[in-house]
Design a protein around this nucleic acid. Structure first.
Lengths: 137, 137
DNA sequence: GCTAATCCTTCCAGTCGCTGGAAGGTCAAG
DNA sequence: CTTGACCTTCCAGCGACTGGAAGGATTAGC
């Protein structure tokens, strides 16, 4: 099938599919007219990539996951370790975002948000802690 | 002062400070020897940028925040709106990460993680839902 | 058979926010 | 006078695409 259909079936944009070929994640045949010709197995691979990317695995991790997937002798422990590391990263990001929120929320809360120029958010960014700016900095 | 001291005082790497000059976020004087010469006000600006970036504002948002900061006539509502949008984005990212986690965690939990090749994580990526892969896909 | 629309190709450039490195000038200490 | 730290510019690369130009192939309709 042509790239357009492979794109529809895998859910990946054609541009992305060509890019994945560039970086050797997939290697479709070529038809006589030069068009890429995707097999069902190629599409399967693309869907695999689509899912794995959606789960936040990097391209290199996807590459590894694919090789583990096609290696009938690999241990599931290898895959589990990668997934666990992803979970750890996800938790760390959630933590970071929550402390970001904790820093930003009080600033928003105490900013009156009206026509007056006095703004605690800018004051904080400028480094005025626990005071209101009166004069120019 | 030279860039090294400005770097120390602002907490930003010298490379980043030069980059900020490139994109017109800061415009230090030049000494006779061609070295950049930062004033206290420049350092203040850099610290402002450092804080705002740490709160997750994009470079363009920082540019706007700086202009709002130096505009004595701006309304605090403008800044509050930006900060609130940041909070919304933060919440959305937290949500996304949490559903990511919810998708990945059960896969990790049900993967036995041993020497056997059978692996529910790969099965899921390959699109085998609610079964164990027995034959090749 | 002709034309227009759609699909495909390759290649190059841009995104974002830096970061690394090369090649070379300047300055302070010993 | 040399060494080393600091500074300069410029160019390239990161990750993972995405946009667009220029042109070839195919298909549908007239």
């Amino acid at each position: 099938m042509n790239i357009g259909e492979a794109s529809e079936r895998s859910g990946l944009p054609a541009k992305t599919i060509r890019y994945y070929e560039d970086i050797d994640l997939v290697a479709p045949d070529r038809a006589e007219n030069g068009y890429r010709d995707y097999s069902l197995s190629d599409v399967h691979r693309l869907r695999f990539l689509h899912r794995a990317r959606n789960l936040g695995f990097s391209i290199d991790e996807c590459r590894l996951l694919l090789s583990l997937y096609t290696d009938r002798n690999r241990a599931s422990a290898d895959v589990k370790a990668m997934a666990e590391q992803r979970l750890t990263e996800i938790d760390a990001k959630i933590q970071a975002l929550q402390s970001l929120k904790a820093a930003l929320q009080p600033l928003v809360d105490c900013c009156h948000g009206d026509e007056r120029p006095d703004c605690p958010i800018l004051d904080d960014l400028a480094g005025f802690h626990a005071k209101r700016s009166q004069a120019q900095a």
